[in-house]
């Protein structure tokens, strides 16, 4: 109805035209914008929204995966508070994230700087540094298992040769999580590649100008390189956070002997516990509640990261 009135007016009355144009442009942008993101919208509704709603519904029930779910209200959510393993899993995952994510950013940055060195055969080094990220996690986990083997692995032989203690990485609850943090660093090549792309995008003129002012390489890194890399650092933080919080496969392969999360729950990670509840203990409802809580918590975490990043992320166009 509004269209039939407004549309002729705009055509006929020039004075109102600019006003409408502004409105129309906004409108046009919305339509065009939505058209561009429409594939995502379709995928979101089909492959995410439905599963999430389903999960939400299941989280208020007791459900084995078969038969009829039994409504239990907030029981699953209340149960978390008293579930000691839930808290162990939260603690383990937080510990893992707090180490793996920041270390991951630093390692990736160091790799990227190294990959950016002007030596002729640098592409060989790049390939080597990137290689571990290509290996399937399944195979990498097995190799890692062999490398860290307390009595046979070459990593510990190396430590012994250096006169360092022979650490039981996989069997001592004190070190098992550290072993997972170290494993994560083999995948740093992925982020390093993105960092490298960002490094390459820094206009040479910036560095040249700073060099004329006599700035040292160290100062130029902090003053020029790092600020310009902040958008990709933010990307890597979010990536690391979301992948880290869902750590699963490597725990299952390396510490999954019987039961996953060994030794003594020291590698019991959140999603591992979630999976166990859903598929091993027939507690689909509880698993669903765990999933939603994880979802909300990570959203809050992400929001905090974004809020924090406002202080340091630098967009060139801004």
């Amino acid at each position: 109805m509004a269209d039939t009135i407004v549309l002729p007016n705009t055509i006929q009355k020039p004075p109102e035209r600019s006003g409408f144009n502004r409105f129309y442009r906004k409108h046009r942008n919305l339509i065009v914008g939505l058209l561009f993101i429409s594939p995502w919208i379709v995928g979101f509704v089909a492959f995410l929204l439905y599963p999430i709603l389903y999960t939400l519904q299941i989280s208020f029930t007791r459900y084995s995966g078969f038969g009829e779910p039994v409504p239990v209200g907030f029981e699953n959510y209340q149960h978390m508070l008293n579930d000691s393993v839930f808290w162990i899993a939260v603690g383990n995952t937080a510990f893992y994230l707090a180490l793996a994510v920041p270390i991951g950013v630093v390692v990736a940055m160091v790799l990227a700087l190294a990959m950016n060195q002007p030596v002729r055969e640098v592409s060989i080094y790049r390939a080597i540094l990137y290689l571990p990220s290509i290996l399937p996690l399944f195979a990498l986990s097995f190799v890692y298992l062999a490398l860290l083997h307390p009595s046979r692995g070459i990593f510990n032989q190396f430590l012994i040769n250096l006169g360092l203690p022979n650490i039981n990485w996989l069997g001592d609850p004190q070190y098992s999580k550290i072993a997972l943090v170290m494993l994560a660093q083999f995948g740093a090549g992925q982020a390093a590649l993105i960092f490298l792309a960002a490094l390459k995008g820094i206009p040479p003129s910036f560095h040249e100008a700073a060099m004329l002012d006599g700035a040292s390489a160290w100062r130029r890194f902090w003053g020029i390189t790092l600020p310009l890399m902040t958008p990709v650092i933010l990307y890597d933080l979010i990536l690391g956070l979301s992948l880290g919080i869902q750590i699963f496969t490597q725990v299952f392969i390396i510490f999954g002997s019987d039961p996953p999360g060994s030794p003594a729950n020291s590698t019991m990670m959140y999603v591992v516990y979630l999976y166990l509840n859903g598929f091993r203990y027939s507690q689909m409802g509880y698993a669903a509640a765990l999933a939603l809580v994880l979802f909300v918590v990570t959203l809050i975490l992400a929001m905090l990261v974004f809020r924090w990043s406002r202080g340091w992320v630098h967009y060139e166009g801004a």
Partner: peptide
């Protein structure tokens, strides 16, 4: 869009 990154995959499996 970003939020969807944080949905743990194991939970989507059934649906």
């Amino acid at each position: 869009v970003l939020a969807t990154v944080f949905i743990p995959y194991p939970v989507l499996i059934i649906a």
